[in-house]
Amino acid sequence: MVLTLLVITVVASFTLASVYNVTKEPIAAAREAARQNAITMVVPEFDRLESRMFLPLTGRDSLEFNFAYKDDELVGVAVGTYTDQGFSGRIRAMVGFYPDGRIVDVVHLQHAETPGLGDKIEKSKSDWSDQFRDFDPATQVLRVTKDGGNVDAITAATITSRAYCDGIQRAYETFIANVKTPEGGAE
């Protein structure tokens, strides 16, 4: 009796291990493709990419900075950022900056927000996130209008909108602290 169960479990584990090994590469490839795709969406055209990790001023996990160069000149930085203030779980997004700190564009990478409300942060669902294009956090405030900022919240999804702003703000602060002065050279 116990033996039968043991045999079944062992067979099942081996089957899963082999399936895992077969799908490991495609899963990694799919994730990498999604990341690359997000980077190209949020920075100007580039021909070389350099990635480095920076610890943000707030939050416990480091952010991935992808420096995009064209003809060896820095044209933009794509920052993989996150926020834990979402409605249900972590939201990850890719924020692109021009070297002077203005935002190029923002795309979401992963979220579990309510379908129909919070999922409007997706570019395919709504043009809500287009308002971040050319947003300049130096002169405008990355908060929803209800909190005294310059970002229009999604109707009936203020929590999600707030969280998204929090994620972008985290990317911006880290960008300013680590990038703008030494390498950006714009000011």
Binding site: M1, V2, T4, L5, I8, T9, A12, T15, L16, V19, Y20, T23, P26, I27, A30
Partner: peptide, 24 residues
Amino acid sequence: VRIPSFIVIIASFVTIVQLVMEAF
């Protein structure tokens, strides 16, 4: 051990679906 065996079998196939779907 009928029910536990069935659950193991089902869970294996579910994990296969999960991995394949995440990949493709």
